[in-house]
Design a protein around this nucleic acid. Structure first.
Length: 874
RNA sequence: GCCGAAGUGGCGGAAUGGCAGACGCAGAGGACUCAAAAUCCUCCGGGGUAACACCCGUGUGGGUUCGAAUCCCACCUUCGGCACCA
């Protein structure tokens, strides 16, 4: 046995981990269970992680928050579902296989490699004492899981929600695969921040997320349990714009040029038109004319430019004239048609009307190419939020006929104002002009009001091995045929060659060859696999029914457990995983598999773990812990040294959970000191405390008239109040721990000393509460203390969460602050029953108060009940 | 450029209209010890004082209020997201 005076985490933590594994720390019915009768269900979910084999501090932070919530909620009587799993498909395992194959000629199978990592990670999680429902463990790389990816894909294919098309797509040369728009950050691959993505024209599979754009946007305001900034990020990403589609006839042609504009109020100001270089009309319009060569040259030049550079806002506006003209249907004016680098093919119609007077890009282009500028909105005092000086300048510019040199005009006038040069609409406020001119366009059949989104369909094809095979077979006669449901799963072949410079699936001819499901003749399997974000879009549903072999999950279980009550993870997924999972939930709802509209009731985004790092240039900054910088701290080392409880405590204590956490090597030591003090206190007073608990006999302690008991008891109840609010409502774990430390300091300082008057029942009551409050955060030590304090009552996690009694918070004496003109001049200790008049009288007797109001007249006093008296004296 | 978050002691942070700096880290002094570690006690924003008093102080400047770290306006800095989206 170990020395009882010192807390030995190395002995106590494994002891409890083993016992939890046996007992599951709570009654855990089988995986298919539904919430218990009379108990409210609560689904706590953490964003699952990629099994790299090692836990890092980011995981520890994420999961410590989740485990604390789960343990706390169980003690509050909730039926908590707290599953765990791994996002196990993806590049790192495949890259490890490729490296092994190329460097050593070794065949490493990503499946075995990944399963070994999962085992290591699971051991690491258990060492942290997390109370997962281990029997629900789900790994997306197992065919039992990904067959349902395939099944859902087929359902989506039936409904036209999955489709294949040829498109200009983002290609990451480092990943050797295409990426979704959401996975391109700043023109770089989200995994390879040094690697610019390239544009390639390829036939790829897409999910029609744009069909759900409106709903994904409309539901956002109802997600009140989500952080505001995440909702705003999604709103911006979806990027809804209301506008008008207008057809501009092309002179000398049957066809028209449709454009999208949010500013129909500026339609009379159109002086030219622009097409995206990729627009098919661009080549058609110049074919066989003298303009063909310069325009095609321009298109080719733009095509070879780096796409991200080309679409940067500060990029020079360039273009080429096609020699053709469009007719403005409203003004009947001719507008020259250009091809311009700043027009994007992917947005709107790939063509724009250009109003240089009121659009900055058009303005710059017009200046450069000598196109006229025609103003149709005049600034006016009420509507244009600009200074008088600016307004005067714009008005002067308009009145002098918008000279191209602008006479100091650096830009277009983009604010609202009053319509001018706009035919019958002159004099209208432009905000009204938007509506009236759009109506005018619709009435005349020139176009229609419409809505555009920035959101694009989700590109799910990946040209990689370690993903879910897309269940499609190509046939020369039948085209792309879905694999019949009875043939699922399409299992990844193990026999592939990772040393070749292509998708490894192409190296297994037996696997590739498959009969066409429609005609039976020889066909060829699709070798694209699915984006791993498909896996993470519904894993929280599989957790509910992880061993189901006939369906992705049972609907009754989804109805019982969904939505996830509390989701916890990193904010970096705001416009990737969190958007895709919302989309999938709506698709599954429309397939009749779930009832809910939204998967995640509440979302908590924890911030990064950072550490100081000295860069090559000598600069020292606090930055995210990362392997590449080498400023990581291994959780296992900290656990070895101080124990899991100390690490858990520090990571919760060091910063609010939704703020960046700066790692400090001394931090866990400080927390370990606190736990040791607590341990020593409980050990050296073990017998007294045990008797005190026995005296209480399960009843709440009543302090009677003993002032010291009343004091400590009040502190105890106040701590219950604070910790309960911090854990349950605010998620301020740092202040919860601070409150517990305060209670302990009071207990440790005053209780159980020979000269001390605190009774043993009172001390026992405080200790009991302390162990209960601390248990969700530091479960091992609290279990051990509890077992020694109250061995007859079972696990600390079997106890109900303590409740505070408001009447125990009432003070006999209160301290009232006396201010004079808002500055604190005295503190009065008065009976809690003292009236305002009594307090005021006492204040005026105070020497310092008298000194400060001497020679002044008391104008008035402000009294805040039992807190403060402010005397206003002049 | 647009959107969002943040700015408080040597450090992490607390206080969301009412005592600025809870709790912890680091530091200083002391006790115990042959000594060290561990532990315990005291101090710990700046100026000022023998000690009080008092003055200054929550990025900067204004405002609202009896009273502002907290609310409003303008600005500065840092971080995050978006970025030629018509």
């Amino acid at each position: 046995m170990f020395d009882e005076r010192f807390y030995s985490h190395a002995e106590i933590e494994p002891k409890w981990q083993a016992r939890w594994e046996e007992e599951r720390a709570r009654p855990a019915p089988g995986p298919g269970r539904v919430p218990g009768e009379g108990r409210e269900k609560y689904y706590v979910l953490e964003m699952f992680s990629y099994p790299s084999g090692k836990l890092h501090m980011g995981h520890v932070r994420n999961y410590t928050i989740g485990d604390t919530m789960a343990r706390h909620l169980r003690m509050r009587g909730k039926e908590v579902l707290y599953p765990v799993g791994f996002d196990a498909l993806g590049l790192p395992a495949e890259n490890a296989a490729i490296q092994a194959a190329r460097a050593r000629g070794e065949a490493v199978n990503p499946a075995e490699f990944t399963e070994a990592c999962i085992a290591d990670m699971s051991a690491g999680l258990k060492r942290m004492g997390y109370s997962y429902d281990w029997d629900r463990l789900t790994a997306t790389c197992r065919p039992e899981y990904y067959r349902w990816n395939q099944w859902i894909f087929l359902r989506m294919l039936e409904r036209g929600l999955a489709y294949r098309k040829s498109a200009a797509v983002n290609w990451c040369p480092d990943c050797n695969t295409v990426l979704a728009n959401e996975q391109v950050h700043d023109g770089k691959c989200w995994r390879h921040t040094e690697t610019g993505v390239e544009l390639r024209q390829l036939a790829q599979w897409f999910f029609r997320i744009t069909d759900y754009a409106e709903e994904l946007l409309a539901e956002l305001p109802r997600l009140t349990g989500w952080p505001e900034h995440v909702r705003i990020m999604q709103e911006n990403w979806i990027g809804r714009s209301e506008g008008t589609l207008v057809n501009f006839p092309i002179e000398g042609s049957e066809s028209a040029m449709p454009i999208f504009t949010t500013r129909p109020d500026t339609l009379y100001g159109v002086t030219f038109m622009s097409l995206a270089p990729e627009h098919p009309l661009a080549r058609d319009l110049v074919e066989g004319t003298e303009y063909e060569k310069p325009v095609v040259d321009f298109i080719n030049r733009v095509a070879t430019q780096d796409r991200f550079m080309r679409t940067a806002e500060d990029q020079e506006k360039e273009g080429a004239f096609t020699g053709r003209y469009a007719i403005n249907p409203l003004s009947r004016e001719r507008a020259p048609i250009y091809v311009a680098n700043f027009v994007l093919m992917e947005y709107g119609t790939g063509a724009i009307m250009a109003v240089p007077a009121h659009d900055q890009r058009d303005f710059e282009f017009a200046r450069k190419h000598g196109v006229p500028i025609k103003a149709v909105i005049r600034p006016d005092e009420e509507t244009a939020p600009i200074s008088d000086e600016q307004r005067a300048k714009v008005v002067e510019w308009i009145e002098t006929g918008c000279p191209a040199d602008g006479e100091g005009m650096k830009g277009a006038f983009i604010e609202p104002g009053v319509q001018v040069n706009s035919g019958p609409f002159d004099g209208l406020p432009s905000t009204e002009g938007i509506v009236r001119i759009a109506e005018h366009v619709e009435k005349n059949g020139w176009g229609a009001r419409t809505v555009e989104y920035k959101l694009r369909d989700w590109l799910v094809s990946r040209q990689r091995y370690w993903g879910t095979p897309i269940p499609v077979i190509y046939c020369e006669d039948c085209g792309a045929a879905p694999v019949p449901e009875r043939d699922l799963p399409v299992v990844l072949p193990k026999d592939v060659d990772f040393s070749k410079d292509c998708n490894p699936l192409l190296t297994n001819p037996q696997w590739l060859a498959a009969p066409c499901p429609k005609c039976g003749r020889p066909g060829r399997r699709e070798t694209d696999t699915m984006d791993t974000f498909v896996d993470s879009s519904w894993y929280f549903l599989r957790y509910l029914d992880p061993h189901n072999e006939s369906a992705p999950f049972d609907k009754s279980l989804a109805d019982a457990w969904m939505p996830v009550d509390q989701y916890i993870g990193g904010v970096e997924h705001a416009c990737m995983h969190l958007l895709y999972a919302r989309f999938f939930t709506k698709v599954l709802r429309d397939l009749g598999l779930v009832q809910i509209d939204e998967p995640f009731q509440r979302l908590f985004t924890q911030e990064m773990v950072c550490k100081e790092h000295t860069f090559k240039d000598g600069a020292t900054r606090v930055v995210k812990m990362s392997k590449s910088l080498g400023n990581t701290v291994e959780p296992t080392e900290t656990v070895d040294k101080y124990g899991a409880d100390a690490l858990r405590l520090f990571i919760l204590f060091a910063a609010p959970a939704d703020k960046q956490l700066d790692w400090s090597d001394e931090g866990p030591e400080g927390c370990s000191r606190f736990l040791n003090r607590l341990w020593r206190f409980a050990q050296s007073n073990a017998e007294t405390l045990r008797q005190g608990i026995a005296d209480l006999d399960g009843q709440t302690f009543d302090p009677g008239d003993n002032p010291a008991d009343r004091d400590l008891d009040r502190k105890t109840h106040d701590t219950i109040r604070r910790v309960t609010a911090d854990l349950g409502e605010r998620f301020h774990f740092n202040t919860a721990i601070a409150a517990i430390m305060e209670l302990f300091n009071a207990l440790n300082t005053y209780a159980l000393r020979s000269q001390d008057p605190v009774s043993r029942s009172c001390a026992a009551s405080a200790t009991r509460v302390l162990a209960l409050l601390l248990a969700p955060m530091a479960p091992h030590i609290c279990e051990e203390i509890w077992e020694r304090l109250a061995p007859a009552t079972g696990s600390v996690f079997g106890q109900p969460w303590p409740t505070h009694e408001p009447k125990r918070l009432i003070l006999d004496e209160i301290t009232v602050v006396v201010q004079i003109n808002g500055k604190v001049r005295a503190r009065l200790t008065v009976p809690a029953s003292a009236s305002e008049e009594e307090i005021q009288a006492a204040a005026l007797e105070n020497a310092n108060v008298q000194a400060h109001i001497a020679g002044k007249a008391v104008r008035k006093t402000v009294y805040v009940q039992k807190k403060l008296l402010n005397i206003v004296a002049v």
